[in-house]
């Protein structure tokens, strides 16, 4: 065996274990899901072929349409503010010193809490009877606001909870991006008489735009799959006002036992996330054209 062939086999050997796991837990289930979605199926393994029946049902399902609207609204309320707040925090924390290091740890710490803990904390804050905000409002002579039972307020309440919970990771990603920017171009900018605003706009943001793209792509994909907060805070209510797509998939499969239909919705969601991610990537990178 010559050296090139040996290198090639060594390469396969290194990526092999990953490819096996990737295929076993991702590719195979995806393919199986596609098959199941073409059947009327329940959790006991009974299946009857109905072709695209589940998909046509999805097109006319008003509950799914409501869940889709809720999910998109949540993603819109979460991803842009999350990116901006994470950017501002990262810019503020991107400095040497013990204080900044401690704050970096604090902002990252919310990420290690499970969704159960996070929703518990926010229940204490949001609940109209003796919640933190309610107490504050009452002290100011104002009636408590029923954040979790007003159809117009549940989505913002879930969005705020999610923002608080999800901030740590984007901050870390953006900090890592900021620290990749060589320091001497900031010195060159200082000698070029650039104001702080100009430095941010013309030096820093272009330098970390790929990191920002990554944050937006990851967060969009994550928030379109929002589930735990909605289920635990509101159970999707009131009247479905906070039901998300994944929550609906959960209800359809484990409540109504319609596994085939649930899988079809899941495949549709998967396609939507892939399409959005590719669209974002294309929008940001289409002008780059050449390597930078």
């Amino acid at each position: 065996m010559n050296a090139a062939a040996r290198d090639r086999w060594a390469g396969y050997a290194f990526v092999g274990p990953f490819l096996l796991v990737y295929a076993a837990v991702l590719v195979v289930p995806l393919a199986m899901g596609l098959v199941i979605s073409l059947h009327r199926a329940d959790l006991f393994g009974r299946r009857a072929w109905i072709g695209l029946g589940n998909y046509t049902q999805a097109l006319g399902d008003p509950v799914l349409h409501q869940a889709l609207g809720n999910t998109i609204l949540l993603a819109l309320l979460i991803v842009p503010p999350l990116t901006v707040i994470a950017l501002l925090l990262a810019l503020a924390l991107n400095r040497p010193g013990r204080f900044a290091a401690i704050l970096r740890g604090v902002f990252f710490s919310s990420l290690v809490l499970s969704v159960t803990i996070v929703t518990l904390i926010w229940r204490f804050i949001l609940t109209p009877d003796a919640g933190l905000i309610a107490e504050g409002l009452e002290a100011a002579g104002h009636a408590p606001i029923p954040f979790l039972s007003d159809p117009d307020l549940v989505i913002p309440a879930i969005a705020v909870t999610t923002l608080w919970w999800s901030l740590g990771f984007p901050v870390m990603l953006i900090l890592a991006g900021l620290q990749q920017v060589p320091g001497d171009i900031y010195e060159a900018a200082a000698l070029d008489g650039a104001s702080r605003w100009t430095v941010l706009r013309r030096i820093t943001l272009p330098a970390i735009r790929r990191t920002l793209l990554l944050v937006v792509m990851l967060q969009t994909a994550a928030q379109l799959q929002l589930f735990g907060q909605a289920q635990l805070l509101t159970g999707g209510g009131p009247g479905g006002a906070s039901r998300t797509i994944v929550l609906y998939i959960f209800e359809v499969s484990f409540g109504r036992w319609e596994l085939g239909y649930a899988t079809a919705i899941a495949e549709l969601l998967f396609g939507m996330i892939i399409a959005l991610t590719l669209l974002q990537y294309w929008l940001v990178t289409r002008h780059e054209g050449q390597r930078t």
Partner: peptide
């Protein structure tokens, strides 16, 4: 009124 040429050039990479 000073200009500097940096050791590693410090050109703005995206410009």
């Amino acid at each position: 009124g000073i200009a500097m040429v940096f050791q590693h050039y410090a050109l703005y990479p995206h410009m």
